[in-house]
Design a protein around this nucleic acid. Structure first.
Length: 377
RNA sequence: GCGGAUAUGGUGAAGGGGUUAACACGGUGGAUUGUGGUUCCAUUAUGCUAGGGUUCGAAUCCCUAUAUCCGCC
């Protein structure tokens, strides 16, 4: 079935809203955070661990799975859910962002037809088009597919941004025309760079194509926070109330709060799992680096009263040792904590929306989160 | 006891008279936003076993001492 969005409650003091997304695998409240599992795995986490985190939708990636293990492998297995043995909803990214992120400093050729670029694994020349991206996602059989877009770099001049934005709209249409999977939903992606009129145009024209949900892309690509929040503000008034709104690639706790205040329902980000692998953990008082010498003899949990498995069982000194010794368990324990931290943040935000206390919560959260960093460094 | 070789940071080491002692590991910080699993950046020896000498200038040449290693009594 196509996903469906029901609005539960709008917050009084902001544009924030709480809703329910109905999927093939159950119904989940928004705002929600989606952990990223690019290569058909949320790195280091098992499906049981994901369930314990109260994780809803997870993200996977068209480009990566296309290259490895190959679409035919997953298709022959009966789709991505069966291949991963994951019985929850999966969203697949289109591959558009990988052209930006993996081929950032390499030769790539963006044409009207599609994008020529080289495999990050072995350098094989590749050609990805809107049609091919959708065809692959149809075969992967994820629950939500994303339109193939171009993520505009920042900064980009107006002419570039305009041409790119218009081309992304044409790509969205081409993708939608070949889309062919009854149980799968398709989201459109709003681009437009940093320019208000282009963002507005992109939103209005994308919505006209009638997708099952709408994403804001092209944020968190190096722009400052103010610019990023503006990019969201430009777009939100033009998105329909009865469809989910997804801010792509954003996972900094404060950015999530700012996004929710502006009416975003869904977030995804590699941040919690990536920084975990490099020894960082979210706390209410800011991000900490567990490798710091000051934690060598710290036999307390990362975060007091945290409800995650890691904090209930292990100390900072032990996790520090694991990370310093490059042990896989360390990466896993921090991933568990960090993902749970963001999911719990969205759970708190939902409560705030229901109680109309979002602004108060934000003020408190930011005061705590930023305060510690200044005094301890 | 005699002869020979070698002494450079926490570690392995480069440099064989010319301004701030290479590089690697380790240590210490930082970064990370539609993934970059082992990544990236910064920083880390005011000093070359000790003492003396030659020289405008010594980690580099000379002398003595000490330590380690290898031979021979």
């Amino acid at each position: 079935m196509k996903i469906k969005y029901d609005l539960i409650k709008k917050e009084k003091n902001t544009n924030a809203r709480c809703g329910i997304i109905h999927t093939n695998y159950g119904s989940y409240e928004t705002p929600m955070f989606m952990p990223v599992g690019t290569q058909a795995t949320v790195k280091t986490l098992s499906k049981e661990e994901l369930k314990d985190l109260n994780s809803a939708i997870i993200l996977s990636n068209t480009y990566h799975l296309w290259l490895r293990p190959g679409v035919d492998v997953i298709n022959k297995c009966g789709g991505l859910h069966s291949f991963m043995n994951f019985d929850g909803p999966i969203l697949t990214d289109s591959g558009g962002f990988q052209v930006f992120s993996l081929a950032k400093n390499k030769k790539k050729d963006i044409t009207e037809e599609g994008v020529h670029f080289k495999s990050h694994i072995d350098g094989t020349p590749l050609f990805l088009t809107p049609e091919l991206s959708i065809e692959i996602q149809n075969k992967l059989d994820s629950d939500i597919a994303m339109s193939f877009d171009e993520c505009i770099p920042y900064p980009a001049d107006y002419e570039y941004a305009k041409n790119s934005t218009l081309r992304t709209l044409r790509w969205a249409k081409r993708g939608k025309d070949v889309f062919n999977n009854e149980r799968q939903s398709l989201f459109g992606i709003v681009q437009g760079g940093e320019y208000e009129d282009l963002r507005r145009l992109s939103a209005i024209e994308t919505v006209k194509m009638d997708f099952d949900g709408y994403a804001i892309g092209g944020t968190s690509v190096g722009e400052d926070k103010t610019t990023m929040y503006k990019m969201i503000d430009y777009v939100m008034p033009h998105l329909p109330e009865n469809k989910p709104r997804y801010l792509m690639g954003v996972g900094d706790p404060i950015d999530i709060i700012e996004g929710v205040i502006r009416g975003i329902d869904m977030f995804d980000c590699v941040l919690p799992t990536r920084i975990a692998r490099h020894g960082n953990a979210f706390t209410n008082k800011g991000k900490i680096n567990i490798k710091n010498a000051k934690y060598k003899y710290d036999f307390t949990p990362i975060l007091d009263n945290c409800d995650c498995y890691t904090c209930k069982n292990y100390t900072k000194a032990y996790i520090r040792h694991l990370i310093v010794a490059n042990e896989a368990l360390g990466q896993r324990l921090l991933s568990i904590h960090n993902v749970r931290f963001l999911i719990r943040l969205t759970e708190d935000l939902r409560e705030c929306i229901k109680n109309n206390t979002l602004l108060e919560y934000k003020e408190n959260f930011i005061k705590n989160y930023r305060g510690e960093n200044e005094s301890s460094n």
